[in-house]
Design a protein around this nucleic acid. Structure first.
Lengths: 353, 353
DNA sequence: TTGTAGGCGTTATCAG
DNA sequence: CTGATAACGCCTACAA
């Protein structure tokens, strides 16, 4: 007999329920019950099982469990990006609430590409996701076909859909930017610039832009084409866009799609010698935690994204439990700060240079 | 015979490989091969299988597959929070790289609580995660026992561990803050404030603080206890801390644990009539995208967190493939901006009020 | 209260 | 190249 040939040399086969059962002198049924329905097992026996499980280092294997139970306790979310506080907070809220119910969240990123989103949805369903949370509803019809064919509960977020076609949790994007626009109109502004993220494949941004333009149009105001810029957003993009806008016939107010863009705009204004808010009012969106502390502090508006996440979780949990899904329209929190004021020269738009 | 009783009323049983097989007139083995080893199936047959799969709306079920294949294609990451660009970018980089290999990432959040982290690790192993990515190494020994007992590949991130106890991908946190401190020393500062996140359960922050204090100590400088503040960070926390620090015997430079804190400090300086950098130099960390565009722009330093994510993924993939894990020390990108300069009055610290 | 045994959906092996 | 069949690990009737 070779020395040590009764010792496992490498990677001893992972233990299974049957190993625990043997160790504890019970059946696998009792092992399973000890973990899943503790009350149905004699305390003394349960103790023995737990001890045995610890000893052999056993953890129940979710794949086997999922198969037998026909339940994965998995929920998926598809978001455009994680690189934005909006979605990071949303996912955090979603995960926190689902975690309380023992559900694991699958996160995937689509980059606003509808076909990527469809592919990710397939992966999630294949992994057994029992429900899906989707940002907006701009997806191939096939995605929703997939969901309804399997009757997979889902919720649309970051957008409140009044039509009730899908359960949704979010704000009214149009209304939000109507509010921002009206704030500036009320201050007396009549000449506007608009810098927004790319509305392509992003209905939420399209709605926001629509809200601004329509509100202005109601007041007989149109935005000069050169004063209306969209693109991949960043502070730098905001800076560049603003430099262009301020170059000739500058407006007295620039509405920005988010705070990052707006901070770039503030920098551009400074560089070009425009005083904010004296010469130029600027609004952001999303109310980044820093926006209150920069100079000038930034007028912005936001919705509670963590709350949106937990409400979306609640909505999915309701559906999974066979309850009615509740759609929720989130309120807008508007913060007026230093970056907006009455325009210095109400009707004239003189180049301050 | 009741009407329609041949029509499925609700939730027709989800289709399985056998349904596809029947529809295509082949065996389940061929269905499986068509999806997993297409080359081993006659193109014509494969076509038929794919068409049948589409027709019955079949997606392979990962749980069954995992059981049979003994492979879940799941990897887990445990991070302190998603509410920080650092970790959001890291996770994005990790996910992007793993996704290329068909691996799904499980994300969970521990809030810097070691026991929560241990619990999350258990969940992930139970779900069949084949490898784990962990932030730092401040975890109960039990966690690492768990991993080594099952020989689960893992990587430590956001910290470079020279000891080689675990594969790691990250920056040298001590060195990073030595760099920042030396920048200020070189400018002529001799009196410092320090505002950092809570170092409790966070060895990375502890290292950073150590780097600052040690470097100063090497120059015979100590930080007044009242000028040294830690806590749950936010711009507001930075503001409050700075107000306290500037109140009496203010330093000429304040080193901040991150840009969010630093932006609060800039606001406090402004409120108290301190000119930055004339009266006070301020440094941040992480180099938030807005830090370059605010006023005054913020001297900061960072590492590429997306890169760290993809390198961590690479490290895990190497181990999963039986290759040697490569630890990587990331470089620090230092950006000197407007918020730091020589102190106005080199040796005197006069209250500017 | 506990044990027995069949089945969850897929894949790997081996024979044809 | 394709098919039959035995796992994979667990749970849950049902029986004892």
């Amino acid at each position: 007999m070779a020395p040590h040939d009764d010792l496992p040399i490498v990677s001893p086969r992972k233990s299974r329920a049957v190993d625990v059962a043997r160790e504890a002198g019970v059946s696998t049924a009792t092992v399973s019950r000890s973990f899943n329905e503790p009350d149905k097992v004699l305390p003394k026996v349960r103790e023995r099982v737990m001890e045995a499980a610890r000893k052999v280092g056993w953890l129940p294997h979710a794949a086997g469990s999922a198969l037998a139970r026909q339940r994965t306790l998995l929920v998926g979310t598809i978001i455009p990006t994680l690189r934005s506080g909006i979605f990071a907070n949303f996912v955090a809220g979603l995960q926190e609430r689902l975690g309380e119910e023992g559900i694991t969240l699958l996160v995937s990123v689509s980059g606003n590409d509808p076909s990527k989103a469809l592919a990710e949805a397939r992966v999630m369903l294949s992994r057994g996701a029992e429900a899906l949370s989707l940002v907006g509803q701009a997806y191939p019809e096939e995605l929703f076909d997939l969901l309804s064919a399997r009757s997979v509960p889902h919720v649309i977020t970051h957008e409140f859909c009044g039509d009730g076609k899908h359960p949704s949790v979010g704000l009214d994007n149009r209304e939000a930017f109507v509010t921002v626009t009206q704030h500036l109109l009320a201050l007396g502004h009549r000449k506007f610039g608009l810098i927004m993220p790319d509305p392509k494949n992003n209905n939420r941004v399209a709605e926001r832009i629509g809200g601004v333009l329509e509100t202005l149009s109601d007041h007989g105001i149109a935005i000069n084409a050169e004063h209306q810029i969209t693109g991949e957003w960043s502070p730098q993009m905001g800076y560049d866009a603003a430099v262009g806008i301020l170059n000739r016939m500058p407006p007295t107010a620039i509405i920005c799609g988010n705070d990052q863009i707006a901070i770039g705009v503030l920098a551009a204004a400074r560089a070009r010698g425009f005083h904010v808010p004296g010469d130029l009012s600027v609004t952001g969106f999303d109310d980044d935690p820093v926006s209150e502390h920069i100079f000038p502090s930034l007028t912005s508006a936001r919705t509670d994204n963590t709350l949106m996440g937990s409400l979306a979780a609640e909505c999915l949990l309701d559906q999974l439990a066979g309850r009615q899904a509740k759609s929720q329209k989130l309120t807008l929190l508007f913060a007026e700060r230093q970056s907006t004021s009455r325009p210095a020269k109400t009707d004239l738009n003189l180049d301050p240079q």
